[in-house]
């Protein structure tokens, strides 16, 4: 499986489908500890991304970074609150580091590292503060380990996705110290962070787009 521009497009489409399916779940998580708009915002953002992707007459996209840049600018424009700038910056930094026709195992790590660096520099968050960073940090670590062990690019993504999922679940007992949830202090414990959950969804979509390209299709239900 070559992680090329077609993979990147599949990744984005799968993310849009996955976010649409999880819209209510994300909103419910956000309602517990935030302002309850994360599912709606992410769904609107990725719908807009798909519309851009399908826009007739758009310049041909040849590099992975071309697709990621489109995601970045669209999310920044269309997603309100902090999630737009944060995910936008993550995709933008990843785009800058993936200006090539395909990414190899080291390229996957570089892409994820750039995304993490974008989120931390923009959001000033560190691990353990119950944010997206708590899903993305273990993802980068797992991807690095997998790549060092000689895993195929798709397997590197799979390692990252699994670690992000575990990292997101690990936010449940955490007390938030960043973002809207931090206003709740101790009461934020006991709920999964919606930003960490959406990060896990995005990386799961990246993995699925690499491992299972055939199952890709408009609106098709993929098993979680």
């Amino acid at each position: 499986m070559v992680l090329d521009v077609e993979w990147a497009e599949r990744w984005v489409r799968r993310t849009a489908e996955s976010v649409a399916r999880a819209k209510d779940e994300l909103t419910e998580l956000d309602r517990q500890i935030g302002d309850g708009d994360h599912g709606e915002n992410m769904d609107r953002g990725f719908r807009a991304v798909i519309a851009k992707l399908d826009e007739p007459g758009a310049p041909e996209r040849t590099e992975v970074g071309d697709v990621l840049k489109l995601v970045a600018t669209t999310l920044m424009s269309k997603v309100g609150g902090a999630a737009g700038p944060l995910y936008g910056t993550a995709f933008l930094r990843a785009a800058k580091r993936s200006a090539r026709t395909d990414v190899d195992r080291a390229g996957v790590v570089v892409l994820l590292e750039a995304a993490l660096e974008g989120v931390t520099s923009r959001g000033k968050a560190e691990p353990g503060e119950k944010t997206m960073v708590d899903a993305l940090t273990p993802a980068v670590e797992a991807a690095t380990a997998a790549a060092d062990g000689g895993a195929e690019p798709a397997e590197v993504l799979a390692a990252a996705a699994d670690a992000a999922d575990a990292g997101s679940r690990a936010t449940i007992p955490m007390v938030a110290t960043k973002g809207r949830a931090s206003y709740l202090g101790e009461r934020s414990a006991g709920h999964e962070d919606p930003g960490a959950r959406s990060t896990a969804l995005i990386l799961a979509a990246a993995r699925d787009a690499a491992l299972d390209p055939a199952a890709d299709g408009a609106g098709e239900e993929a098993p979680r």
Partner: peptide, 8 residues
């Protein structure tokens, strides 16, 4: 988030 938007 206004600050984040400007930085972006």
């Amino acid at each position: 988030s206004a600050v984040l938007t400007v930085e972006s």
